[in-house]
Design a protein around this nucleic acid. Sequence first.
DNA 1: TATCCCAATCTGGTATCCCAAACCGAACCA
DNA 2: TGGTTCGGTTTGGGATACCAGATTGGGATA
Lengths: 225, 225
Amino acid sequence: MSQMQQVEQQLRDMILGLEIAPGERLTERWIEARFDASRTPIRAALLRLETEGLVGRDGRGWTVAPINLVELEQVSVYREAVEVAAVRLTCALPDRGGFEGGLEAIEGLLESCDAETTREEWHRVGNDFHIELARICGNEFLARAVRDAMLRLSRARWLEVREAPARDRAWAEHRDILAAVKAGEADRAAALLSAHIGGSRDRLIASLHDDRRGLRARGFAVVAG
Amino acid sequence: MSQMQQVEQQLRDMILGLEIAPGERLTERWIEARFDASRTPIRAALLRLETEGLVGRDGRGWTVAPINLVELEQVSVYREAVEVAAVRLTCALPDRGGFEGGLEAIEGLLESCDAETTREEWHRVGNDFHIELARICGNEFLARAVRDAMLRLSRARWLEVREAPARDRAWAEHRDILAAVKAGEADRAAALLSAHIGGSRDRLIASLHDDRRGLRARGFAVVAG
DNA sequence: TATCCCAATCTGGTATCCCAAACCGAACCA
DNA sequence: TGGTTCGGTTTGGGATACCAGATTGGGATA
């Protein structure tokens, strides 16, 4: 793997893992020292992370993207449109991508979680459910759009204060959506998915909005509406 | 404007204008000589164009993205989902973005075309109609998605063999869609837009599929389904 | 003549170097 | 004391030198 890809992945992990605070300034020289790579691959990595929305420009200089509630809301609306379209496509498929890496695999994902599962795992599987669900429709662009959107939502979802009941409800909704898709009931799947995403969005925004002081106290830049 | 942006824009223009053939190999050194810039800004430009799908990697080395009929089909499906969602959002707005740079401006776009209009203008305004229509919904991500999709479709739309009647029909459909949005009739607008994009897609794919020998004869790499 | 092999060449990847502009702080003036 | 200016420092943008691996073209050989 090239150094550029290494730097990119490590930086992304640090940002998504909140090891670098949202809103924090980044200098190419600091990254150079931190990762022991020269500026050429670093700049390439920053350019890619910029297109992913994880870092941005602050005049001259780089900044880790802040938590932006307006952006989160818009990304979520975008993702709802794309995911619903993907699920409708999947329902229209003859076998609904039911085999080899399709719906069954996703069902396996859901069932891999139980009371013992760590928070990291819940988070990861929660992402993967939506990404995989979109992937089996066969349209690369819809799948990529969902991946990008989930990436942009990742830090916020991690910060969200979620109690066990809310988590269990989300999981139940995942199962319902999956069942509807397996049955090929496009309208029901679309409605369930839409409601699921809409509800997640509202709770996510509300949770972050309520806790924005706490977040700022942790050194995170939070841009509220 | 930085050199990187200049190189990026010029390269993009050359690719979209088919001055560099789809599928053609690009070397950083050739670009260096061609644009009299050093490899640093050139690499940055290539990285960005890669995310736009205009250039890609061919093992080691860069390649201008070929005309890929499967990709075009998928991008079009993606764009239909996003554009319909954007229009529904717009219809739900109180004033439907009707003022200052909103719907009226788009109407102006359409009316700026007549029998005297050059092919370049038709092409540009055809793109802008969809981009602007998506923009007024207020969701940056939906708007960006449409922009990206139209960019990916741009070369193919340019190559498409279109007679005047087909062109006029497309324009009439644009007007109908706009009228439905102005009236706030979300379902009608969505249905019209969906049909318009679906029809465009089918004709585009069919046109390129029929002419793929001619395109290959011009040195264009065409990947058919 | 066909084939194989090696060296010259060309490629993108990386490390550095230089530069102009922006930033920051201290010193100085009102 | 508060504002301003000015110079050093730091920044990203660009240019270039160097490297390792891939490619290729030609010449030697069977």
